[in-house]
Design a protein around this nucleic acid. Structure first.
Length: 230
DNA sequence: CCAGACGTTGTT
DNA sequence: GTCTGG
DNA sequence: CCAGACGTTGTT
DNA sequence: GTCTGG
């Protein structure tokens, strides 16, 4: 679940939407219609710039003990039910809970030949995935990394998939990323968003991560608009 | 003790 | 089938 | 997540 | 690094 997402706003817009400050980013072009694992993303968490610092990261958590910096793993999801006890994730759960902003994410119906769907918030607000992160440091290179937590899908989403990312409401953002919160409390906040999501079929152009222009939304937003001749 | 794994998704 | 690249 | 490669020799 | 399996 949640192996591809999109983020429309540029840095300036995103900082305003999140009420955040930049840390180590001076440019983020939007829109980014097709973000796959291992690619650069941004995470929000307490930092040098304030309680909601927005920093660059790699999507695909790298455990701090990982040996080979030339072959990094891609742990792009972590199960919320078990992350707190897994050797690869528990340090991140305890010390580095982050928020990954998105406009929405994609899912595929494999029973229909990998038909893609987009999932967005019905209220149009920015989507805040609950994530966990590490700072992977090997030699001269320092890399912030992150994974998105998943839970069983809400009944409303079960027709789309059996798992879904944890989506935090705005009033939970700061509590989630506060390292003083207990792990028990934090994991109790990992519940499926029960409603308020729009699922829309989009074009198969999204399937190939090299396609980044978002044209697959044309058919979704304005379907069958081609018959308007004079 | 040392060696080896350490993760998710989906599909069969 | 499995790994890499996007 | 999906798409696409998956190999060697030698030469440029 | 830390846990599990042998």
């Amino acid at each position: 679940m949640c192996g591809r997402f999109f983020l429309v706003p540029d840095l300036h817009e995103l900082l305003a939407l999140l009420d955040a400050m930049p840390e180590g980013i001076d440019d983020l072009r939007g829109p980014r219609w097709n973000i796959p694992p291992t690619m650069p993303i941004v995470v929000m968490r307490p930092g040098d710039a304030g309680p909601r610092s927005l920093a660059p990261a790699r999507w695909g958590l790298v455990p701090t003990w990982w040996r080979d910096p030339d072959k990094l793993p891609s742990f792009h999801n972590a199960r919320a039910e078990t992350a707190a006890t897994k050797p690869s994730f528990r340090g991140a759960v305890r010390y580095r809970r982050v928020i990954i902003p998105a406009t929405g994410f994609y899912e595929w119906d494999r029973a229909r030949g990998r038909t893609p769907f987009s999932i967005t918030r019905s209220d149009g607000d920015v989507m805040a995935f609950a994530g966990i992160g590490t700072v992977y440091s090997k030699g001269p290179h320092v890399l912030e990394t992150a994974a998105i937590l998943t839970v069983d899908a809400s009944p409303a989403m079960r027709g789309t998939h059996d798992r879904m990312p944890v989506i935090l409401e705005r009033d939970a953002w700061d509590a989630w990323t506060d390292p003083r919160a207990s792990v028990d409390d934090a994991m109790a906040w990992c519940t499926p968003k029960p409603e308020g999501l729009d699922v829309v079929e989009v074009g198969t152009g999204v399937n190939n991560a090299r396609n980044t222009d978002g044209r697959w939304f044309e058919s979704a937003i304005a379907p069958v608009a081609a018959e308007d001749g004079p």
